[in-house]
């Protein structure tokens, strides 16, 4: 027996089922101009959220009386706002034909169960890019944080590239990084994220807290880590402080 025969049954791939959160643009009217205007307003509020966002076009909620849209125009409009169309959700034969012509996957309407797609419908599905998790950009502070100032990074990390004075307070739903001495208070994972951490170049903090578990300076200054570069993490309801 030679080598190729041995490897012939060695799997090169596997199919896996996966639940992905994908944004669906559910159209209720087929007015392209109004759509463009309203979409522009939405995108303006959170431009980062819409950048290269995978999207499913939901045409199944279009009222019967509404005229059908040219699918390519709709995709082009979405593309202008950074939305990348993965598939169309429809059962209208015209739409399915248009999707097939554009080599776009067709999905059943939201209220229907998975149905068998007739052979002429089955087009090779475009490889689905896994949906990027919605990421909140980190908040970056480049100037010293002075006593009496409070900085909160909602939904993400807080990065400070300057000293944090005594009497200052840093809060983040995610991690806190301080590239300088940390003399004030730092509270990471304030919404309860126990995997959040605090990283600083000089631990002189008045208080460090992760997901509500805290240590005050009174306890911290007894540690050999006082004044050093450390990371603070939470495990089993205990704060771990390790040298960096």
């Amino acid at each position: 027996m030679n080598q190729p025969d041995l490897l012939i049954n060695d799997p090169v791939f596997q199919f896996k089922g996966s639940m992905l959160a994908v944004t669906v643009l559910e159209l209720t009217h087929s007015d392209l101009d109004r759509l463009r205007q309203q979409l522009a307003n939405k995108v303006e509020q959170a431009p980062n959220f819409f950048r290269d966002t995978p999207l499913i076009l939901g045409l199944d909620k279009l009222a019967g009386g509404e005229s059908r849209l040219a699918l390519s125009d709709l995709m082009q409009l979405c593309r202008e706002f950074g939305l990348r169309t993965l598939a169309v959700r429809t059962e209208h034969p015209d739409d399915i034909a248009a999707a097939n012509a554009l080599d776009l996957a067709v999905m059943p309407p939201s209220n229907a169960r998975e149905r068998s797609i007739t052979p002429q419908d089955s087009v090779p599905r475009t490889p689905q890019k896994p949906a990027e998790p919605v990421r909140v950009p980190s908040k970056i502070v480049r100037t010293p944080v002075r006593g009496g100032q409070q900085i909160y990074a909602p939904g993400g990390d807080l990065i400070v590239l300057a000293p944090v004075s005594a009497g200052a307070e840093l809060l983040a739903d995610g991690n806190i990084h301080v590239y300088g001495p940390l003399r004030g208070r730092a509270l990471a994972g304030v919404k309860g994220d126990q995997s959040a951490g605090i990283f600083c170049q000089g631990l002189n903090a008045e208080l460090v807290s992760i997901a509500g578990v805290y240590k005050v300076a009174e306890d911290l200054r007894r540690l050999p880590h006082w004044g050093k570069s450390v990371q603070v993490s939470l495990s089993d309801e205990m704060l771990n402080i390790l040298l960096l």
């Binding site: 010293p144 002075r146 006593g147 009496g148 100032q149 005594a166 009497g167 200052a168």
Partner: peptide, 13 residues
């Protein structure tokens, strides 16, 4: 020093 620090914060904001 602490009060000056507070004042610097106000100047910056």
């Amino acid at each position: 020093v602490r009060d000056s620090d507070r004042m610097l914060g106000l100047l910056a904001s």
